[in-house]
Nucleic acid binder design. Structure first.
Lengths: 190, 190
DNA sequence: ATGGTCATGTAAATTGTTACATGATTAG
DNA sequence: CTAATCATGTAACAATTTACATGACCAT
């Protein structure tokens, strides 16, 4: 149950459901994501289970904020999860599936355009990571490098950027391959 | 609805549900995966919708095989899906989430071991892709390089390998970072 | 005869997405 | 006054996983 464990991790500093969604849209976007409709029930379950405690705090504009934070029980569960070795879920890539079958369109130009667009999307995504990165470095420039927490967070960011760069390099390589092939074939069977 | 479209793509050559699961465990493992319990109902839905046709064929051992193949309607739908630009789903990485929060364990040695195990898992995974790759090259060595179909399939394989290599490189880099840090810190606050 | 592979599926549970409902506050 | 943001949530749907049910045939 990864989502709940991620919430445990995030709630080592107290936050509301709304805050957590913001985290999923920003700081941990490269790792996981969840909607409010999934977050609220999860917080409720976890509180009933004793993993979280809830306090109320007033807010300017809108209903009162419900702040959750991790309990000793919750910490124990979080550590158990951290200690159980890397969890490798199944990865799914719709865009790769599309490319895999794209011979069906019988038009190399379409494959080229597809990969070009894919590259653009990946570049945009990398730019977002870079923004998180910059923000991260800016806010942690207080005295002699990273804390333990910061280092671990930074490492995951770098993983995201590594992977994206590799994918973009693959796009370039693939575009070349396709172009070379088109040239070779042109004129042979027109 | 990516699963159904992937089934359409695969069923350009007729296959049974059982065959399709084998494909998800082998040739397209790096792209998508699905269990029989998801495949069978999908095939049924798609047949009722007119995207697939079904024929019966006897089999040695076991019940008769039900072979599905794509219809003209199905092809139209497949092309529509291929033509709608790269679909970028949300990616989720439980193991990155674990690393992100691993400062909680307060033990750098555990982070090192974690990344080491992660690297091993990635290496095993890359080995599997290499096996597919070899098998692929072997079976397509009939006259002058790749067909269109083969080229597209080959490209997706290379994407998988690129991404995995990048992640392994990241593991190495991270292990170094963590080791350097441990050295620096050792003795300062023992 | 026992266990593995071939081959079909259904049922229940979990996880994730999309749509809807409500209401206050603030910026344009 | 209108739209966006803050803030709570529920309901319905879709996708995925895990467990269960059945039976033939083949190799040890």
């Amino acid at each position: 149950v990864s989502l709940e464990h991620i919430l445990l991790g995030l709630l080592r500093t107290p936050a509301s459901g709304y805050d957590l969604r913001a985290a999923f849209q920003q700081s941990v976007r490269h790792i996981w994501s969840a909607e409010l409709s999934q977050i609220y029930p999860a917080l409720d379950r976890m509180t009933r289970r004793g993993w979280l405690r809830r306090t109320q705090a007033p807010s300017k504009r809108g209903p009162p904020r419900r702040l959750y934070s991790i309990t000793a029980e919750g910490r124990k569960e979080l550590r158990r999860w951290l200690d159980c070795g890397p969890i490798m879920g199944t990865e799914r890539f719709a865009y790769l599936a599309q490319l895999y079958f794209m011979d069906e369109l019988g038009d190399p130009a379409k494959s080229l355009r597809f990969i070009t667009r894919l590259r653009e999307a990946l570049a945009a995504w990398r730019q977002q990571l870079k923004t998180i990165d910059t923000e991260f470095l800016r806010s942690s420039r207080g005295l002699g490098g990273f804390s333990d927490e910061e280092l671990h967070q930074y490492l995951t960011l770098r993983m995201g950027m590594h992977a994206l760069s590799a994918k973009m390099a693959w796009c370039d390589e693939s575009l070349q391959r396709l172009r070379r092939r088109t040239k070779r074939t042109r004129g042979r069977r027109p």
